[in-house]
Computed example of a mutant assay.
Amino acid sequence: MPRPYPPEFRARAVALVRAGKPISRVAAELGISQGGLHNWVRQDRIDRGERLGLTTPESTELAKARKRIRQLETEVEILKRTAKLLGEDRPDPKG
């Protein structure tokens, strides 16, 4: 995975595009890909409310929530396996 660019660099690149410079020229001047810069500009438009989509804070929160859900599902699976090994998954015969 490529190393992420600092937020200040991204903001400066997006500002150049918003000022009217073509994405291709800005990308060439900064040595970044046109597709990457296009994604940054699109996300900036979403964050500003100019376009529909998940804002950066919402996206970050969603990623954290999904990670926590995976962690909890793993913990539940471990508990189920442990209960099965210890025989706690069978009903009590005296009931």
Rank of each mutant, 00 (worst) to 15 (best):
residue 1 M to R: 06
residue 2 P to S: 02
residue 3 R to N: 12
residue 4 P to G: 13
residue 7 P to N: 06
residue 9 F to S: 14
residue 9 F to Q: 14
residue 9 F to P: 08
residue 10 R to P: 03
residue 12 R to P: 06
residue 13 A to H: 03
residue 15 A to N: 12
residue 19 A to Y: 03
residue 20 G to H: 07
residue 23 I to S: 09
residue 23 I to D: 11
residue 23 I to H: 09
residue 24 S to R: 15
residue 25 R to N: 11
residue 25 R to D: 14
residue 26 V to N: 05
residue 26 V to D: 03
residue 26 V to E: 02
residue 27 A to N: 13
residue 28 A to R: 15
residue 28 A to G: 12
residue 28 A to H: 12
residue 29 E to I: 01
residue 29 E to V: 07
residue 31 G to Q: 12
residue 32 I to N: 07
residue 33 S to N: 10
residue 34 Q to M: 04
residue 35 G to H: 11
residue 35 G to Q: 10
residue 35 G to M: 10
residue 37 L to A: 01
residue 37 L to W: 00
residue 39 N to E: 11
residue 43 Q to I: 01
residue 43 Q to A: 01
residue 44 D to Q: 10
residue 48 R to F: 09
residue 49 G to R: 09
residue 50 E to W: 13
residue 50 E to Q: 10
residue 50 E to I: 04
residue 52 L to F: 13
residue 52 L to H: 14
residue 52 L to N: 14
residue 53 G to I: 14
residue 53 G to P: 13
residue 54 L to G: 01
residue 55 T to R: 06
residue 55 T to Q: 04
residue 56 T to L: 00
residue 58 E to G: 09
residue 58 E to K: 13
residue 59 S to A: 15
residue 61 E to G: 14
residue 64 K to W: 08
residue 65 A to G: 07
residue 66 R to N: 10
residue 66 R to L: 00
residue 70 R to P: 07
residue 71 Q to W: 13
residue 72 L to G: 00
residue 72 L to D: 00
residue 73 E to I: 05
residue 74 T to N: 10
residue 75 E to R: 15
residue 75 E to F: 05
residue 75 E to L: 15
residue 78 I to K: 12
residue 78 I to D: 02
residue 78 I to S: 06
residue 78 I to H: 08
residue 81 R to Q: 10
residue 81 R to C: 03
residue 81 R to V: 04
residue 82 T to S: 04
residue 83 A to P: 01
residue 84 K to P: 05
residue 85 L to R: 09
residue 88 E to I: 07
residue 89 D to F: 03
residue 90 R to V: 13
residue 90 R to L: 15
residue 90 R to G: 03
residue 90 R to F: 11
residue 91 P to S: 04
residue 91 P to T: 02
residue 92 D to C: 13
residue 93 P to Q: 11
residue 94 K to W: 11
residue 95 G to L: 06
